[in-house]
Amino acid sequence: MSESHTHPAHLAHHFSDVEQQRESAKFGMWVFLLTEVLLFGGLFMAYAIYRAWNPDMFYNAHKALNIYMGTANTFVLIASSVTMALSIRSMQLDKRKQTIGFLIATLALACIFLVIKYFEYSHKFHVGQLPGKYYSYTGIKGTNPHIFFGIYFGMTGLHGLHVLAGMSAIVWVLIKTVKKKFSAEYYTPVEMVGLYWHLVDLIWIFLFPLLYLIG
């Protein structure tokens, strides 16, 4: 960045130049992602411990999950990650219309993910494959299969909330893109939302084999 005699509109007063501002935002975002990893980490730990204690029950219970829906959702989320990455690339090339298109595609894929999740959830609610005292299904062998569903709903539920949060963030940058707030010079918020969205994808990449593919 050149000497900032002329302050660009997006440069806050306490930064000395645009570069410092951009790097700070990115740094902050990565630290935030670190906190997200550890937030989910607690659930991964619960998963690891209960699976190690009850390997057979986990195996039996995981069969209640619909592997086709899970796989479909994995494809959907990966595709959304690709479109998200491409939306940033288009912004870097100053192709605003393309960015808008890719952001909308990402949103659409996120919606598909949630719709599939909704069908999975409603089926489990219907047959009583639920956590804790709400568990009323009788077709799974092993002690305390409700624990598996407690963990399943905990992990996918928290992940689902993150999908929702990511979608709202995408809507926010979409509006700002439409309003021509971003350019090849300044697109930090899009980049940050992109990082967040990839993290949501990343977590699902682990949730999927752990929950659906217990061999």
């Binding site: 956590p131 804790g132 005292k133 305390n144 407690g150 963990i151 905990g154």
Partner: peptide
């Protein structure tokens, strides 16, 4: 998790429920 345990009786901290 504690709040879930209390509200929904998830049972992951409850020896009664495994």
């Amino acid at each position: 998790l504690l709040i879930f345990e209390r509200v929904f009786s998830v049972g992951i901290f409850n020896p009664d429920m495994g």
